[in-house]
Design a protein around this nucleic acid. Structure first.
Lengths: 165, 165
DNA sequence: CAATTTATGTCAGTCTTGTTGACTTTCCAA
DNA sequence: TTGGAAAGTCAACAAGACTGACATAAATTG
């Protein structure tokens, strides 16, 4: 027996292959726009997207260890080490030996690191702000819910929590 | 659940730096999850993410030209040409000389190309389907709105339109 | 205390995918 | 018809991922 009802209802339509295809392409194009502004700035440095990511998460979690950063970024330690070495040598990140466990290195942004972080994140915040404003609070709530379900569950704990006053 | 606050609260809260930072990190982690499944499959081939993107958009727009694909993908023609050459040599994409303008190449997936496209997109559709289902139709609508505003406006016309029967 | 594990760093080599530069073929307009 | 623009191709290089092997120091375990 075949159900001949067309999927007109909103509750069914949002799971058609067309909708899913649209979602896939939204991810592609939105991510490209999202990374384009910082990329332009980074071209003036010897840095790339990998450096931006390291700077971002060290800023968000000052004192984080290399291992924690590896978990967040999902790259190999050799890959991360290359960018950290450069950023430490260039004086944007400070690496302090751990007090409790002296094998660990705790990472902090220097004032120069903070300056670059601001410059980079400013462009992305501006883009997000414009998108949020145009879409409205309810849409933002929906955006958040879908995005959290797209990511791997283990990564959710790394996403910034919003302070509710 | 949407918290109902006095006008100043609700209409401003979703534009705090905390919210914007959260949005930035949602983009990062969601995109990483989104690309992880196809990446795993592609490891068994000599192909990478660039090949996936080419296959995806040739599938979506059979007969598209190299130039149109360049506009969509936002890479240099030399970069795109390399992956197209491989895919044509391997018999996944067919390149036909244009009839009206013989400088153009029109691109089509072969049956083998269609097979790989299905295999790759299946994993992404599955992830999107699960996320959409978990978040619900209203959230999906909000997701779509925010994503369309994050991307560069010129790219919106390349996003799949949903057939409403 | 010796052996093992953990955290980090480094060297070497490979792969994908971006880049620029130089080139051919084709079309079109002066 | 000829010179420029457009579409596509080939070659060489660079960034940033990867794996594998190895080193060092510190913590943990038997």
């Amino acid at each position: 027996m075949q159900d001949r009802r067309p999927p007109t209802g909103e509750s069914l339509l949002f799971l058609t292959d067309d909708q899913l295809l649209q979602g896939i392409e939204l991810m592609f194009f939105a991510y490209r726009g999202f990374t384009s502004d910082p990329d332009k700035i980074l071209q003036n440095y010897t840095y790339g997207r990998a450096h931006h990511r390291a700077i971002h998460f060290v800023h968000r979690q000052p004192g984080t260890t290399v291992n924690n950063l590896l978990d967040i970024l999902g790259v190999t330690k050799q890959s991360l080490n290359r960018v950290l070495r450069q950023l430490v040598n260039d004086g944007l990140i400070e690496s302090r030996v751990g007090e409790r466990d002296r094998r660990e290195r705790h990472l902090y942004l220097t004032p120069e690191g903070v300056a670059l972080e601001s410059k980079l994140s400013e462009t992305q915040r501006k883009r997000m702000r414009a998108a949020y404003k145009a879409a409205g609070p309810d849409a933002v709530q929906g955006f958040r819910q879908v995005m959290e379900h797209i990511m791997d569950p283990a990564m959710r704990r790394h996403v910034n929590t919003v302070k509710r006053d």
